[in-house]
Design a protein around this nucleic acid. Structure first.
Lengths: 127, 127
DNA sequence: ATATGTGCAAAGCATTTGCGGAGAT
DNA sequence: ATCTCCGCAAATGCTTTGCACATAT
């Protein structure tokens, strides 16, 4: 059976309160506000549990450490090349799974968009 | 200036002759047919050079080591959950870059399809 | 000759694991 | 009391790096 430890709660809460996918390191820092001696290994262990339970979803960005976010409905991600943050994109085209030849059985897909997020866009209308 | 060493040639050739993205380890093994004492570090060094020159493209599959393939025109990838191999999908929908809200400047995108490749599909028509 | 490239071994990261002790039930 | 969980440190797997020697130009 699963126990309710304060570190587990702090970790879940840190992820839950974030508006975007967080790195284990970020989760550690956030959760340490509640549990100062919290260890990174504990963060990873709980992250793995949460992912198994499907309460949390890993977000993989090439060349970067894995981030984690609360599981929600199917969506994709945007990686800002300037500030290096990752944002959720709540949209999905059904054209995507149709890209493969018919002898490939597509069960799932992942899309990553790259570019500049609103805060990193040189405001062109400001001359 | 860049030199033409036999290890460099062997590495480039190994990638060029592959029909699919290869792992550094696979490249090492293949290239060792030509240069027996070839070292993994050398493979990585040359891979990085080739990627910088854009002659080779890294292919990232979540939770897996990075694979490499010859740069070609824009395409995507299919990861077979059964045999763990990665295949090129030479198709792309222009709907993809339109998924983000307009205040996000999309410059590039990446798509990974997951499922079963033709050789790993349980032939349903065989009852 | 000389600067670049290589092999080898060690260092770096992100992530996992073993272990003895702490805490939830 | 018991069994799960935690902290810590060591281990792992992929990738990079420092250094002394080799080699392409």
């Amino acid at each position: 059976m699963q126990r309710a430890t304060k570190q587990r709660q702090a970790i879940a809460q840190a992820i839950g309160q974030a508006a975007r996918p967080l790195l284990p390191q970020e989760i550690l820092t956030d959760a340490q506000a509640a549990v100062p001696h919290l260890n990174l290994a504990t963060v990873y262990r709980n992250l793995n549990l949460l992912v198994e339970e499907k309460r949390v979803t890993p977000v993989h960005i090439p060349g970067q450490a894995t981030r984690f976010e609360i599981s929600g409905h199917h969506h994709h991600h945007f990686h800002c090349k300037a500030c290096d943050r990752v944002f959720d994109i709540h949209a999905c085209s059904n054209a995507i799974s149709k890209l493969a030849p018919k002898d490939f059985q597509v069960e799932d897909h992942e899309v990553i968009l790259y570019g500049r997020c609103p805060s990193c866009t040189p405001s062109s209308h400001r001359t």
